[in-house]
Simulated assay, not measured.
Amino acid sequence: MTDRAVQTDEILFSRIGSAAIIRLNRPKALNSLNLAMVHAMKPAMERFANDPEISCVILTGEGERGLCAGGDIRAIYQLGKAGDPDVTRFWREEFPINYTIARYPKPYVALMDGIVMGGGVGVASHGRHRIVTERTKLAMPETGIGYVPDVGATWLLPRAPGEIGTWMGLTGEIVGAADAIFAGLADMFVPSERLGALTQALGELKAGSSDRDVRAVIDGFAGAPGESRLAMHRDLIDRVFAFDTVEEIIAALETEPGEFAAETRAVIARRSPTSLKLTLRLLRAGRKSSGLVECLEREFTVASELLRNRDFYEGVRAAVIDKDRNPQWQPATLAQVSDADLDRYFVGGHAVLFPEHRL
Rank of each mutant, 00 (worst) to 15 (best):
146 G>R: 06
308 R>A: 13
206 K>Y: 12
257 P>G: 04
138 L>G: 02
255 T>N: 11
182 F>H: 07
135 R>Q: 13
154 T>H: 13
131 I>D: 04
94 E>N: 15
95 F>D: 01
314 E>N: 06
198 L>K: 02
38 V>P: 07
240 V>C: 04
208 G>N: 12
218 I>E: 02
49 A>E: 06
302 V>Q: 07
136 T>S: 10
237 I>A: 02
100 T>F: 14
353 L>W: 08
95 F>W: 14
244 D>M: 12
85 P>N: 02
51 D>I: 00
285 A>V: 05
72 D>A: 13
90 F>T: 08
334 L>W: 08
229 R>G: 07
85 P>K: 01
58 I>S: 01
158 P>Q: 08
39 H>Q: 11
291 G>E: 13
104 Y>I: 10
249 I>W: 08
250 I>L: 15
299 E>M: 03
11 I>H: 02
39 H>G: 03
41 M>N: 06
322 D>R: 10
226 G>E: 14
82 A>H: 00
348 G>D: 15
142 E>P: 03
276 L>Y: 14
198 L>N: 12
20 A>F: 15
108 Y>K: 09
62 E>C: 06
237 I>T: 03
229 R>K: 09
51 D>Q: 04
301 T>D: 09
224 A>C: 14
149 P>M: 06
90 F>I: 08
79 L>S: 06
309 N>Y: 13
153 A>H: 11
113 D>L: 02
269 A>C: 13
304 S>P: 05
140 M>V: 15
248 E>V: 04
354 F>N: 07
2 T>F: 12
346 F>T: 10
133 T>Q: 05
61 G>D: 02
162 G>W: 12
75 A>I: 09
97 I>P: 01
284 R>D: 11
260 F>E: 03
92 R>T: 11
97 I>E: 03
73 I>A: 02
283 L>A: 09
126 H>K: 10
342 L>C: 13
103 R>P: 04
97 I>T: 10
238 D>V: 14
112 M>I: 12
232 M>S: 12
241 F>P: 05
149 P>T: 09
301 T>P: 06
179 D>Y: 01
307 L>I: 14
201 A>P: 11
126 H>V: 11
89 R>K: 13
183 A>H: 06
205 L>R: 01
64 E>A: 10
156 L>Y: 04
130 R>A: 02
106 K>Q: 08
221 F>H: 12
256 E>F: 14
151 V>R: 00
229 R>D: 15
72 D>V: 00
251 A>H: 14
126 H>W: 06
58 I>C: 11
245 T>F: 13
350 H>G: 08
253 L>N: 11
140 M>K: 00
308 R>H: 05
280 L>E: 08
68 C>F: 00
38 V>Y: 01
90 F>W: 10
308 R>P: 04
28 K>P: 00
283 L>K: 09
8 T>Q: 09
160 A>E: 10
68 C>L: 07
265 R>S: 04
130 R>H: 11
33 L>C: 01
250 I>W: 03
70 G>H: 08
349 G>K: 15
317 R>I: 00
84 D>W: 10
93 E>Q: 05
184 G>F: 10
87 V>T: 13
